[in-house]
């Protein structure tokens, strides 16, 4: 170990604690205290507002559906990437991470260009067939799915690589069908990785703002979500409601990280 001077160690500690308190802990704490400035009235008022309740419902519907889509495709793509050989595999593996470095605003823009009903590449045809994507729930689900897409795959791929495929081959040589191998061997062994991936994707989906704002059109009482209602209320000087909804969102996301933190060591032991 490097022997660091005790004074330097103290300075470093104070620097780190001070930085984290000023940047994260104190401001987050203030949102909690602001929410309960007048007891539960802010939360009660928020829940009494039909537009707020509708926005919360929209967030719940959109995030649950997009997490389910990411679950199915995430697990499928992970298994294909690790267990199969096909042309373009390395390119696909690199492209999967792209949504992580694209601005949410650009995600919204990209979906708008392809699916808007007036001159979108596919949107015009879909609109003729009576299918509405932009400014409606399907577009919001697509935007949310886009931004959270790599999360399940990034959790599952390393675990699949780690466990290897000896057991799968053993089962196959004993006459198990592909479906049996998947259900009895592969899925149980990546169970926890899938759980982490789903929790992380859920947290990301609940909190998505920029991409959803652009494709939803942010129509009050219709396509507004919990995050876009926070913006609208804050700008319209209804700060208690903005704080109350922020508190709910922060609470949900903190639960998600705590769940991951609690589950993770169990799996590694």
């Amino acid at each position: 170990m490097v022997r660091t001077h005790p004074a330097l160690r103290l300075v470093l500690r104070l620097l780190v604690v001070g930085y984290l308190v000023m940047l994260v802990a104190w401001p987050v704490g203030l949102v909690v205290t602001h929410t309960f400035d007048h007891g539960f009235t802010a939360l009660d008022n928020a829940f009494a507002d039909p537009n707020v309740v509708h926005a919360l419902k929209m967030t719940a519907i959109v995030s649950v559906i997009s997490v389910l889509i990411n679950l199915v495709f995430g697990v499928t793509i992970s298994i294909l990437l690790v267990r199969y050989e096909f042309w373009g595999k390395r390119a696909l593996s690199a492209l999967i991470d792209v949504p992580l470095s694209v601005s949410p605003v650009v995600v919204g823009l990209s979906l708008l260009l392809v699916y808007n009903p007036i001159n979108g590449w596919f949107g015009a045809g879909l609109a003729d067939a009576g299918i509405k994507i932009i400014f409606s729930t399907p577009g919001m689900i697509m935007a949310t799915t886009f931004v959270a897409l790599p999360l399940v795959i990034r959790e599952v791929v390393p675990v699949l690589e780690e466990i290897g495929d000896d057991q799968e081959w053993a089962a196959r040589s004993l006459g198990a069908s592909p479906v049996q191998v998947l259900r009895r061997i592969t899925l149980p062994s990546i169970k926890w990785a899938i759980v982490y991936g789903v929790v992380l994707a859920l947290a990301r989906s609940i909190g998505e703002f920029g991409a959803v704002k652009i494709v939803s059109g942010n129509i009050v009482g219709s396509t507004q979500t919990a995050t876009t209602v926070v913006e609208e209320r804050y700008q319209n000087f209804d700060q208690p409601t903005a704080y109350a909804i922020s508190f709910l969102l922060a609470f949900a996301s903190v639960i998600c990280i705590v769940v991951v933190a609690v589950l993770r060591p169990k799996n590694e032991s």
Binding site: V28, V31, G207, F209, T227, V230, S253
Partner: peptide
């Protein structure tokens, strides 16, 4: 973990 809009408010 925090939604970005909440981060701004925080």
């Amino acid at each position: 973990a925090l939604p970005t809009i909440v981060a701004g408010l925080v």
